[in-house]
């Protein structure tokens, strides 16, 4: 009966015995899995809008950055299954989200805003003044 101890435990023991300086925990640390969130992109006269499905995260775990004309969205998702027992049936994985887009000079990076609710992230990218079409009144004489 005792022969059927889990291999994970055995490995951990070996690791501890042979190389005590090495971190024994590495075997059990879950590798972070990244997912590409599906997005819709809209353009209005004054802005672009990126809407992404990112269920299971929180607004303070989402990082949006603009660097060298790249808009990068990273969202951390906590391992919510840790306190829920064992997986009996799995059809999707739970992990962090990542998505990036090149945005060009037409966006005013300083003015980008975002909201997160019901698992949906909405990023608003106002256009730079230079590309917003200006309506010019035509005077009649």
């Amino acid at each position: 009966m005792n022969n059927f101890t889990t291999t994970g435990t055995n490995n951990e023991m070996t690791c501890c015995n042979t190389t005590p300086k090495e971190s024994c925990g590495t075997e059990t640390v879950k590798r972070p899995q990244n997912y590409r969130a599906p997005v819709d992109v809209y353009e209005t006269e004054s802005a672009f809008c990126v809407i992404a499905d990112m269920p299971g995260t929180r607004s303070d775990n989402i990082a949006i950055s603009v660097e060298s004309n790249m808009l990068t969205i990273d969202a951390k998702v906590r391992d919510r299954y840790a306190a829920m027992g064992t997986l009996r049936h799995q059809e999707y994985g739970v992990g962090d989200y990542h998505r990036s887009f090149r945005i060009g000079d037409g966006v005013n990076a300083e003015a980008i805003t975002a909201t997160y609710s019901n698992g949906v992230l909405e990023v608003n990218l106002p256009k730079a003044e230079a590309v917003v079409p200006r309506k010019i009144d035509i005077r009649t004489h």
């Binding site: 829920m84 027992g85 064992t86 997986l87 009996r88 049936h89 799995q90 059809e91 999707y92 739970v94």
Partner: peptide, 10 residues
């Protein structure tokens, strides 16, 4: 898609 988890009670 759905996931199903199980513990002793639920």
């Amino acid at each position: 898609a759905a996931n199903l988890l199980e513990d002793d009670d639920n």
